[in-house]
């Protein structure tokens, strides 16, 4: 007689009522955080980061969207065709807007309008995580700021918290707006927030993020900051690097190299 594979308790009738208190309690008190997971330790040894080599990026042909397209295709990001309800995981903005604090008035103006790739900064101290009332978003040990679409109630407080505008909201059912569905990755439903997840599902399979893979110019460099010999560490060495709004204390882990 087996009630449960994990063998909660092998009980017989008479003890049933009394003993059921404990597993009953476990069910009700199942709080999912912090729950030490066997992976946590190994995750803690990693700190994923990305560097965007703007020079390389700009050397690509005008209007190159390889990385964005790859990202959106793989993650079933819908294209609603309007600015109002736009959903984007990765996108570009002109340099002067991304780094408004950079004084461009008298410097060379040729990269003022150049596109800069934007995505979730996967902050070390992500504000969005603080605000979520249901812990639908949280930071993993390896630095990835995760979204649990199952749990999002759509209050959009995380969007108010994010200073980078990295989060999008599903203003309506996204499925009809997805050109070709990738069955490997779920779509979202209306009413939840979504954002770039550093291709966490690909990392798990030992692959690099889709955008990095798609970039023919090798302008995107991805790797583990905690490994001294990782590509991303090498890319950051001896270069002038920028982060978006480091003054806000969010410690972004997407770097821009110029």
């Amino acid at each position: 007689m087996q009630f449960d594979r994990r063998g909660f308790l092998k009980i017989t009738g008479l003890t049933l009522l009394g003993l059921s208190a404990k597993p009953g309690w476990e069910v009700f008190s199942k709080i999912d955080q912090p729950e030490p997971s066997p992976m946590a330790e190994s995750l803690a040894k990693i700190r994923w980061a990305m560097a965007v080599d703007l020079k390389k990026c700009w050397s690509a042909k005008e209007g190159c969207r390889d990385c964005i397209d790859a990202c959106h295709r793989i993650h079933n990001v819908p294209n609603l065709g309007t600015l109002k309800e736009e959903i984007k995981w990765t996108w570009t903005e002109p340099y002067e807007k991304v780094f408004p604090e950079h004084e461009l008035e008298y410097s060379e103006e040729n990269h003022r309008d150049k596109p800069v790739l934007l995505l979730c900064n996967q902050c070390d101290d992500p504000p969005c995580v603080k605000y979520c009332p249901t812990r639908a978003t949280w930071r993993r040990e390896d630095g990835i700021v995760m979204m649990d679409f199952h749990r999002c109630i759509g209050c959009r407080y995380c969007m108010a918290g994010c200073p980078y505008g990295s989060r999008s909201f599903n203003w309506r059912d996204p499925r009809p707006f997805i050109k070709k569905i990738n069955p490997e990755y779920p779509t979202r439903t209306r009413g939840v927030v979504e954002k770039c997840n550093f291709c966490v599902e690909r990392l798990a399979q030992g692959l690099i993020p889709a955008c990095v893979e798609a970039c023919k110019e090798k302008a995107l460099i991805f790797g583990d900051l905690k490994k001294p010999d990782s590509e991303v560490r090498k890319a950051l060495q001896n270069r002038v690097i920028y982060q978006r709004h480091p003054e806000l204390g969010t410690k972004p882990k997407v770097y821009y190299i110029l």
Binding site: F3, D4, L16, S20, G24, V27
Partner: peptide, 12 residues
């Protein structure tokens, strides 16, 4: 009621 609830919650 209790045996029913238990079957629903724990001992499926």
């Amino acid at each position: 009621a209790l045996s029913g609830v238990l079957m629903r919650l724990i001992f499926k």
